[in-house]
Design a protein around this nucleic acid. Sequence first.
DNA 1: TCAATGAAGTTGTATATGCAACTATTATTC
DNA 2: GAATAATAGTTGCATATACAACTTCATTGA
Lengths: 136, 136
Amino acid sequence: MESQNYCIAGRLRMLARVVTGLYNDAFTAEGVTFAQASLLMYIFPQPGVRQATLSKQLQIEKSAVSRDIQLMQRNGWITDNVRNGLFLTDEGTALAKRCHKIWKGLNQRVREELGTDAVDGLSLLSDKLLTKLPKE
Amino acid sequence: MESQNYCIAGRLRMLARVVTGLYNDAFTAEGVTFAQASLLMYIFPQPGVRQATLSKQLQIEKSAVSRDIQLMQRNGWITDNVRNGLFLTDEGTALAKRCHKIWKGLNQRVREELGTDAVDGLSLLSDKLLTKLPKE
DNA sequence: TCAATGAAGTTGTATATGCAACTATTATTC
DNA sequence: GAATAATAGTTGCATATACAACTTCATTGA
């Protein structure tokens, strides 16, 4: 092999940019970004979830979560009193469901196009990266 | 398998956040972010490279490249007359070399900790994602 | 030559993130 | 129960990105 010394971080960041664009396109019809749709879909099945929990689950810095939540609240998708756990409004709930439908189809399609091996490759990488390299 | 339906985009984005943090830490001593170090290391071997080329190589939107470059220019790492190709200043060149040294060690270490299989998994995923799913 | 095209860059606007420092809330210990 | 420690959330500040619209140049035809 030749280019077998590419940058792990650089490659992952590039792929993240590419798939983000791909997924974002699928959600523009709903007027949400993928990041927002993702949060909606994380909150939906765990009503009352704490920002700190989402921060760990998604590995997003707590201040970033705080701001994402504030934005979603301004959009009317999350109720007030954020410090006592997160709850979707009716509108937020409906949106989360529509996003999930979109996501399910898209993610399935992407998995098929990538193929089992590539997806398994991601799973393996993911496992190693999240368990072997956590901040000590 | 159970959790075999995770979100491809979500996972990639999470991994990108994690490795970004890891690589950023390694560059803080030099006062650069990984994103900046990466650009320096891309420009170094291709003096006079165009923003449009970097945009394609890194899959970063051209306006984002433009702003990254402006910032690096303000930092004194890139010469003026950006519209005629990018050139590192002496300071930028020296910094690029130091960054490359840091990167080489870190990336090697990360590769070893991840293991060949995980890295191959990333390579495969990368190949599929960049060839099979490009914006039509 | 000069108008039409197209590529490259820039700028307005917005989101997504991170780090540090600060505040607020809760839990622990004397 | 009050002081202290720990956890959660927020805010100031900065970078990284994206999309759309605009500007600059360079190319190409008639």
